[in-house]
């Protein structure tokens, strides 16, 4: 479905994406990366909106640059906020479908069906200035699916949604996945992408750092060192017990009796702390982790990429 060979994209002197090689068959993919990592650039390259500085891009076997007819098979929901305050959701989606070459009547029928699919029928005749963020997000999905594409590309579809909206979006995407159609879901939030059980593409700093199943990504994540901040009545005793029980990468005492440790065996460390607290040897006032899962994942991947860290999936505990 999509092939990228040695693809690099430069914006003058800034690298958008750097030497990306990937071949994606039909399926469900999660494109994960921090903000500014090159996800949107990669999507624009795939859709022929940007021309690669180096390398070749193929979409459905053809070069998407100058092949706008290929876009008939693709539905895109960009991360950008739609801003048509005076236009109704139905009018906007109808217009978007008309740009695929449908006549007005057919476009309006498809727009109504798509808006119904995202549960926006009741509000479709209201001006979009009256829409909540979640409703606008659903309208964006509707314009992407209304022409029945083979490949749906969603860039940060969960952005700005409340928990109910996120759940509904996950449900909808799972339903889409069961239709046998392809999906690329770009996000910087790991667990949201996990909900649709995709194969992962991990991108950071314009480079494709890794790809694989959710289990493989979890394996990388659990092998990454965790940073724990522990407040206790006796930091020194706690430190000596932790050093005895598990492998500690770094250890730091703060002025306010906190102990900060970095370890790949966070589970063992937490068990030791719990045991000491239960036996009354120390009083634990605080345990917190400063790690964000995706941040840790990409930090780990960058270290592996730079050769600063070896990948040991078995080291997790």
């Amino acid at each position: 479905m999509i092939q990228l060979e040695n693809v690099s994209k430069l914006y003058k002197t800034v690298i958008g994406v750097n030497e990306i090689n990937v071949e994606l068959g039909e399926g469900i993919y999660g494109l994960l990366g921090p903000n500014g990592s090159g996800k949107t650039t990669l999507i624009n390259l795939i859709l022929g909106q940007l021309k690669p500085t180096l390398g070749t891009v193929r979409l459905f076997g053809q070069n998407p640059w100058r092949q706008s007819q290929l876009l008939r098979r693709v539905g895109l929901c960009p991360s950008l906020e739609v801003n048509y305050p005076l236009v109704t959701g139905l009018d906007w989606v109808t217009y978007m479908v008309e740009l695929h070459g449908f006549n007005f009547a057919a476009a309006k029928r498809r727009a109504k069906d798509a808006l119904a699919a995202v549960k926006l029928t009741d509000a479709m005749n209201r001006p979009m200035r009256n829409y909540s963020l979640g409703m606008r997000q659903r309208a964006k999905i509707a314009q992407a699916i209304a022409h029945d594409p083979d490949l749906l590309i969603l860039d940060e579809p969960f952005s700005g949604l409340d928990p109910v909206g996120r759940h509904e979006m996950s449900q909808y995407l799972n339903k889409w996945a069961t239709k046998g159609k392809s999906l690329i879901l770009a996000s910087h939030i790991l667990h949201e992408v996990e909900a649709v059980k995709p194969s992962f593409l991990l991108i950071s700093g314009g480079r494709l750092l890794a790809s694989g199943s959710p289990a493989e990504v979890r394996s990388i994540l659990t092998s990454a060192p965790s940073r724990l901040v522990i407040g206790s009545s006796d930091s020194k005793q706690l430190a000596s017990k932790l050093i005895a029980d598990c492998q500690i990468d770094s250890l730091e005492f703060t002025d306010n009796d906190q102990l900060i440790i970095t370890t790949r065996q966070s589970r063992t460390a937490l068990e030791t702390i719990t045991r000491l607290a239960a036996s009354g040897q120390i009083v634990v006032s605080e345990i917190s982790s400063t790690d964000d899962s995706l941040k840790t994942l990409f930090s780990t991947l960058m270290k592996i990429h730079r050769g600063e860290l070896e990948y040991h999936p078995q080291a997790s505990s």
């Binding site: 859709l47 909106q49 706008s68 876009l71 895109l76 960009p78 950008l80 801003n83 978007m96």
Partner: peptide, 17 residues
């Protein structure tokens, strides 16, 4: 500027339209 360019450009007839 209105951030609607991608919505339109990613259609077969979007740019010319």
């Amino acid at each position: 500027e209105g951030k609607s360019w991608l919505f339109i450009a990613c259609r077969p007839h979007g740019r010319t339209s």
